[in-house]
Amino acid sequence: MTAPTRWRTLTASVCGAAHRRRGLPNQDAVRVTRCPDHAPLILALADGHGSAHCFRSRCGARLAVGVAHLARSQLHEPVGLSGVRRWAEEQLPRELVREWRRRVERHLAREPFTTDELDALDTAGRRTLAANPFVAYGTTLLMVIVAPAFILYLQLGDGDILTVAASGAIERPIAQDPRLIANETTSLCSPQAWDEMRVTFQALAGAPPGLILAATDGYANSFRDEAGFRQVAHDLWEMIRGGDWAGIERGLPDWLHEATEQGSGDDITVGLLAERTDAGPPDAAPRLERDTDPHERTAPTDAA
């Protein structure tokens, strides 16, 4: 069994080309947490919806990646693999939704909806918000937890997770949801959102994947087809195998900028987890584009 104490991590997030043209901020969020003993490792990405009704989704996304890291406290409990799996499948989704909503309520209590925010909505929008204020903060959530004995993948809404085995085989640990087309997505603000969370638990009997890539949907949507997106994972894996992790660190923000300019126009956020083969210490998780919303008081940090 390979202990995941030597994983390289890298995250990058760029504002969408279409968002820049319209003067909108990047509404994605990303966070990597290492526990003090370097195991487990948690990567979380969130994509705030950004629609007129979801006018605080940038904040909602950052609350979501913060909530994701609450999982670490549970992971230190000595419950065994089957216990972790049961917890991940049965309890974790509800806990994540409950905590995200609690934090949204706290934020809303501090900063109630303003007249300007509500005036921008139509009657139906105001009615929706009155019934479900979480809509204003709507966001997706992608999570990867790497522990010595297992890897856990969790997804709510659109976005993509790819793994690359040492052999170069590329897989999706969570299958694509055929319902998620036309920019419609399941969301933390959806009623019974926990039922929409998809969880894949992999006990590590052999070698873990060499590379795990998680991305908000703006990245895959920037390629002409699925093969073009999978090619990203293949090419990155080739660079890692060739010892060029530094090249990925240097190039990733520019590659994402190019993708949003020539592709989807959407915000793009990527998180990479790669098992390192040398004996060096684990990497920090550099944040290549920081959120700077002065109203958000729970801004995440990169490494806990």
């Binding site: 279409a18 319209r22 994509d47 919806h49 950004g50 629609s51 007129a52 009704h53 979801c54 139509d122 139906a124 929008g125 009615r127 929706t128 019934a131 479900n132 809509v135 709507g138 997706t140 809404g157 659109d158 319902r179 998620l180 036309a182 920019n183 419609e184 997505t185 399941t186 969301s187 603000c189 959806s190 009623p191 019974q192 929409e196 126009g265």
Partner: peptide, 17 residues
């Protein structure tokens, strides 16, 4: 041509504004 994401299952939000 530049739609924002819409939350599924939320009444009144399942159609592009």
């Amino acid at each position: 041509s530049s739609p924002a994401s819409q939350a599924a299952g939320v009444p009144l939000l399942t159609h592009m504004p």
